[in-house]
Simulated assay, not measured.
Amino acid sequence: MTESKWYWSILDGWTMSRRSFKHLFRNPESLFLSFGLPVILMLLFVYIFGGAIQTGTDYVNYVVPGVIIVCVGYASSMTAMSVTQDMVGGLFERFRSMPILPSSLMVGHVIGSFARNMIGTALVLLAAILIGFRPSAGLQEWLGVIGILSLFLFSISWLSVVFGLLAKSVESASAFTFLIMFLPYVSSAFVPTDTMPAWLHAFAENQPMTPLIETLRGLLIGTEIGNNHWVTIVWFGGLLIISFVVATMIFKRRKSE
């Protein structure tokens, strides 16, 4: 019985993931936000701001991790809005009358979000290489990049699901994700934190995006990582667990309403 339940859970989750993929490619706005925006931001920062910012290395090498993280923040709003749309649009109610696990709705959104962001990340890296990005990472470092990014993407995806479940409208779901989009700008993503005012420097150094970006930058181009990788794992591992538990609790509560 347990094995059968797991089998149908996986099958239903995959069905909802396929639905997310189809919606992405049928929606020009979502397609641009996921795949076009990352490349445009990369070109914008490198060619417009890069000449005015001194980072001790070619700016394209410095900025790649920050662009990836910013684009994940923008994409998180799309995930939250999609979850809210499904909840307020009556899809969940229809699932109740069908032989499908309603919780697969959340799983489908998470997997769809993860896949979109991974494709966007690959496009950022490809565009960066075409304009001069030269990573020094070996196989071990690339595996580390994939692992850290996967942890970050899953944690943000589940947090977006939480926001989507809490929101009462699609518009408010988008507003909930503002903090995710804002934090990378107040970090070491685009400028060294020691160039910031003292009060802002303290915040930038101790918020979760800075150790994440410093870890990715160190893995990609060999800058000093220190203990940033452990701090990143604690921050986003904890966020993943908390977001998953909270999303499950909210979903069950709404299920009983």
Rank of each mutant, 00 (worst) to 15 (best):
P208L: 04
K252T: 08
I242C: 09
V107A: 00
R26F: 03
F152S: 04
H229I: 13
F133M: 05
D194Y: 11
F203N: 06
T55D: 05
Y7A: 12
F178Y: 14
I233Y: 11
G66M: 03
S256V: 13
R116P: 13
P192F: 04
R254Y: 14
M196E: 01
D12K: 01
Y47S: 06
L216S: 02
D58R: 09
L216C: 00
V88G: 02
G112Q: 02
F244T: 08
P99G: 15
G112N: 00
G90I: 03
G66Q: 03
L126I: 10
P184T: 14
S104W: 01
L24Q: 06
V186N: 06
W230M: 13
F236M: 05
R134N: 08
P99C: 15
F182H: 11
L123V: 09
V231H: 06
L212G: 00
M87F: 14
L130H: 07
F203T: 07
I69P: 11
G138K: 06
T2A: 14
S169L: 12
W14R: 04
P65M: 01
P184S: 13
E93H: 10
L130R: 05
E205W: 03
L91C: 06
F154I: 05
L219Q: 03
F133R: 11
V191K: 00
L216I: 01
I250H: 04
I225Y: 01
Q140C: 06
P184R: 12
S82N: 11
A175D: 15
G51H: 01
V110D: 05
S172A: 15
G218L: 03
N227Y: 14
D12W: 05
E29S: 12
L125R: 07
N228T: 10
N206L: 06
I148P: 03
F95T: 02
S113G: 05
V245M: 12
F133Q: 05
A122W: 12
S30F: 13
S104N: 01
T121E: 02
L143Q: 10
G66Y: 02
L239I: 14
V70P: 02
E29R: 14
T55I: 05
S172P: 10
N228L: 04
L41E: 06
A128E: 00
Y7I: 13
R96L: 15
N228G: 02
T210W: 04
V231D: 01
F92S: 05
L31M: 14
S76A: 11
V64W: 03
K252M: 07
E214H: 10
D86F: 03
G144R: 00
S174I: 08
P197Q: 10
L139V: 13
S104C: 03
L153C: 08
S150W: 15
S155C: 11
L105R: 01
I148N: 00
T121Q: 00
Y74A: 09
F203C: 08
M81E: 08
S113D: 10
G138D: 09
G112I: 03
H23K: 09
W6F: 12
I148M: 02
P102F: 02
Y74R: 06
S82R: 05
K168M: 03
